[in-house]
Nucleic acid binder design. Structure first.
Lengths: 159, 159
DNA sequence: CCCTTTTAATTCATTTGTTAAGCAAGTGAT
DNA sequence: ATCACTTGCTTAACAAATGAATTAAAAGGG
């Protein structure tokens, strides 16, 4: 019945957890869980669109800030350079953005949102705002504003 | 951009130019940027360990909550089922966790952290707590507690 | 009991994240 | 000007995320 050659099961002792903060109080984990909690409807919205989460962030950033150097697009959209390279190729193919070579430094590119890219935003702005309104209603307007203030501050912290 | 000079009339939903929130005020984007802002040192810490971000979360969750059904591990560690399948295989091979088939429902698994897995946490608990202390100092203890409170509430919101 | 519908977990295909390496263009010191 | 060095972007290789399809067990209804 019992196989002598089978590896012994790893030792599992019932013990108290080592002294770490509760995961709800770990900032990285809490930020991740909070994001997951609000991303469900956003993903549904984007499923109705020609872009995914990442491309949506690129469009939002460009629509808000205007033409931007590629490195700043990466920073502001929270994308790594290699990912952005791939995404830029796809978005250019789809006519959502365009790029021009920088004049001063010919290594750099300036990225522009196109009318077509802006149209994608316009097509989903109502749904996006509706989601935010629902969140405000469920979570509380004041709490949401306070949370956004605190998050904005946190982004500025230089560890 | 369409002009919107008229004060908001009652039928406010249609034909009104829709503009979006600033990206700093978009909760999904703000949460993502805030997380990126704090993850740098955490990644450095985990680079010194045998686990990555995802496995670290699994260990933290199991250490804190004890043996858990696989689906709850996925929920609490913010991992999708297919990802967790792959990660579980690797972590079992490394002897960090073990699983037993559920007694009532034989489709399910209960996941346990092993002594070895707990040791990984113990080995990095000091560094982890030091990072948190540094964040407290730079960002402000009260602000951090408020932020964590708000994030904890947000996780509970059911959209 | 069968039959249909769920649920848990896995697999598969495709895209994205991550890390390291590479290349071309800019910078600066001697 | 030349050389080493840095910077901006790309490529490549592999791990992880995502979404759809699959298998197995459980649950519910006739």
């Amino acid at each position: 019945m019992v196989d002598d050659t089978a590896p012994a099961p790893p030792p599992v002792t019932l013990r108290r957890p080592v002294s770490l903060r509760r995961t709800e109080r770990s900032l990285p984990i809490a930020l991740l869980r909070a994001r997951e909690a609000v991303m469900g409807p956003v993903r549904e919205m984007l499923a109705q669109s020609p872009v995914n989460e990442q491309k949506w962030r690129v469009l939002r950033v460009l629509d808000e800030e205007g033409p931007l150097p590629l490195t700043l697009v990466a920073d502001h959209a929270c994308l790594q350079a290699p990912s952005l390279t791939r995404i830029m190729r796809a978005m250019e193919d789809d006519g959502l953005v365009s790029r021009v070579t920088g004049t001063a430094d010919r290594r750099t590119f300036i990225v522009c949102i196109t009318d077509r890219g802006r149209q994608v935003i316009a097509d989903h702005a109502a749904a996006s705002n509706a989601l935010f309104a629902r969140l405000e209603a469920l979570y509380g307007k004041d709490k949401l504003e306070t949370l956004l203030d605190l998050l904005e501050d946190l982004q500025a912290v230089k560890l």
